[in-house]
Simulated assay, not measured.
Amino acid sequence: MCFGKSDRYTFHIGIEAPPPNICFGSPHPISIFTHQLSNSVMDLIKNDKLDEAEAVSKRLLNEYPDQIDGFERFGQVYEARGEKYIAADYYQKAADFAKVMPGFDKEGVEYNLSKARKMREEKK
Score class of each variant (00 low, 15 high):
Phe33Trp: 14
Thr34Ala: 10
His35Val: 09
His35Tyr: 15
Gln36Met: 13
Gln36Asp: 15
Leu37Gln: 15
Leu37Asn: 06
Asn39Trp: 11
Asn39Glu: 13
Ser40Pro: 11
Val41Phe: 04
Met42Thr: 15
Met42Glu: 09
Asp43Asn: 10
Asp43Met: 12
Asp43Gln: 12
Leu44Tyr: 11
Ile45Cys: 04
Ile45Gly: 01
Ile45Ser: 02
Lys46Pro: 00
Lys46Arg: 15
Asn47Asp: 13
Asn47Thr: 14
Asp48Gln: 10
Asp48Glu: 08
Asp48Pro: 00
Lys49Cys: 04
Lys49Ser: 03
Asp51Glu: 14
Glu52Gln: 10
Ala53Lys: 04
Ala53Val: 09
Ala53Trp: 08
Glu54Tyr: 11
Ala55Leu: 11
Ala55Pro: 10
Lys58Gln: 06
Arg59Met: 12
Arg59Ser: 11
Leu61Asp: 03
Asn62Asp: 07
Glu63Asp: 13
Tyr64Gln: 03
Tyr64Ile: 05
Pro65Glu: 08
Gln67Gly: 00
Ile68Pro: 01
Asp69Ala: 15
Gly70Arg: 00
Phe71Trp: 15
Glu72Ser: 08
Glu72Asn: 07
Glu72Cys: 12
Arg73Pro: 00
Gly75Leu: 04
Gly75Trp: 07
Gly75Ala: 06
Gln76Ala: 14
Gln76Cys: 11
Gln76Thr: 07
Val77Asp: 04
Val77Glu: 03
Val77Pro: 09
Val77Gln: 06
Tyr78Leu: 01
Tyr78Glu: 01
Tyr78Gly: 00
Glu79Tyr: 11
Glu79Ile: 12
Glu79Asp: 05
